[in-house]
Amino acid sequence: MSVYSIKDLEHLSGIKAHTIRIWEQRYDLFSPQRTATNIRYYNSDDLKLILNIAMLKNHGYKISKIVAMPYDILREEVKTIGLENQTYEDLITGLTVSMIDLDENGFSIILDQCIELLGFEEAMMKVVYPFMKKIGILWMTNSINPAQEHFISHLVRQKLIAATDKIEINTDGLLYLLFLPEGELHELGLLFANFLLRSRGNRTIFFGQTVPLNALEEVYHKLNPDYILTALTTAPESSEVQKYVNSLGKKFKDCSILITGSKVIGQDIEIPQNGQILNQFEDLVSHTEISILKA
């Protein structure tokens, strides 16, 4: 069973840990277990409850009214809100609850609602990736089971591939090579970047996970791409990132290199003259608009 700290509950619900503690005492909301060192921890039912409370509060319900509801009534209220007035946060909450329960059908229904309501690109930008970012933090701190993270990644990956396959390839567009370094397996961001580029009339070749630089270099000389895009999230090792970035600049000096990922964003990494850091997906969108004007 997954366990969560009070900071995890705060992170996912948006309700301050101090407030959660007050509600615990005043309304007897939870009965958290304690570690051998007397630190509170919570289970999946506790997390679902605080997520439901957060949604109702965000829609004007008073906490005193919420805690007086039987749980089945509380869930019905949440469902009604979800059907009538969905905000980004409501949708993210729904995805989170589906993840906790490993509810593939529920997750798919909410994801399809997001796409129908917002369009594919905005659904990914405003709901799915903020959700994945929250879940990624929990995964890195071992607060969720890796199976839950893989479950979600698989479903989102399917949607990204299906949406990209529907786009007609523009054979006259600028050419981008997309790849991940050796040892890097987190490809959802790169898959979405592939969608964004193709949807704006660019050509892309998607190499995906764990690509050796010597193999990429061979393809590079054969295809002469306009851009190379990569993401450094868990690889290479932090001590090797600057060396790796320098290698990209030297090996692929005749094209522009776009780099993203937590290993470079906000870090003291020197970027080669032909390189650029993308801090968020909106930066890639802006880049493509500028590139099209220059072409």
Rank of each mutant, 00 (worst) to 15 (best):
K250S: 12
L232M: 13
E240W: 00
D254K: 14
G249E: 02
K243Y: 05
I257Y: 01
N224R: 15
V245F: 01
F252Q: 05
K253P: 00
S247A: 14
I259C: 03
G249W: 00
L223N: 14
V245T: 03
C255F: 02
I257Q: 03
S239N: 11
I259W: 02
T230V: 14
S247F: 00
K253Q: 08
T233Y: 13
D254A: 10
I257N: 01
K222G: 00
P236I: 06
C255V: 06
N246S: 13
P225M: 09
D226I: 04
T230G: 09
P225G: 14
E237V: 00
T234R: 02
S256Q: 13
G261E: 05
G261D: 05
G261T: 07
S247M: 10
S239Y: 09
L229D: 07
V241C: 04
L258N: 04
S238F: 15
E237D: 15
C255G: 08
L223Y: 15
K251R: 15
T233I: 14
Y244P: 02
V241T: 05
I257R: 01
A231D: 05
T233V: 15
K243L: 14
T234C: 09
I257S: 05
K253I: 03
K250N: 13
L229Y: 11
N246R: 08
V241Q: 03
E240G: 00
G261W: 05
N246P: 04
A235D: 09
T233E: 10
E237K: 05
K251P: 00
D254E: 15
T234K: 03
K253A: 13
L258W: 05
C255A: 14
Q242T: 00
P236D: 07
